[in-house]
């Protein structure tokens, strides 16, 4: 199964499925690194609102994806960390370090607009 990615202007919206495998996460990382360049993408939204387990591997990979996207010249924002998942991550001692987060898609898109100086191409 491939993780679904939607394009909105110069933004990609990635919806992570509830049970995403390690392989799919790593494939996603490669795919986003390529698509950011090919499609002139400025912002990537990583939606984790249906993900119910963010363990150490998944968290590290999410950080890796965000860092890869940034190195490719775009910005990533993680949206929709569920309250129970946030609690679990704190217990585990996991952080997203400097990867920005947002409560919902609108806030995530606003964040990307600001971070890229309006470069996400949404015309607002």
């Amino acid at each position: 199964m491939t993780v679904p990615v939607l394009r909105l202007g110069r933004t990609l919206i990635v919806t992570l499925p509830s049970a995403v495998s390690d392989t799919e996460m790593l494939e996603l990382q490669d795919r986003l690194a390529e698509e950011v360049g090919e499609l002139g993408i400025r912002g990537v939204v990583l939606d984790v609102s249906v993900v119910d387990v963010l363990d150490s591997f998944a968290t590290r990979t999410l950080r890796g994806i965000a860092q890869t996207v940034r190195l490719r010249g775009a910005r990533a924002v993680i949206v929709g960390v569920r309250p129970e998942v946030a609690f679990s991550m704190v217990r585990l001692g996991l952080t997203l370090e400097d990867v920005p987060t947002a409560l919902d898609l609108e806030e995530a898109l606003d964040h990307l607009d600001r971070a890229t100086g309006g470069g996400t191409g949404r015309g607002r």
């Binding site: 119910d52 387990v53 963010l54 363990d55 591997f57 569920r82 309250p83 129970e84 998942v85 609690f87 679990s88 217990r91 585990l92």
Partner: peptide
Amino acid sequence: TDLILVATAIS
């Protein structure tokens, strides 16, 4: 919440 803690621990 406990279900998620358990699932994460198992993971």
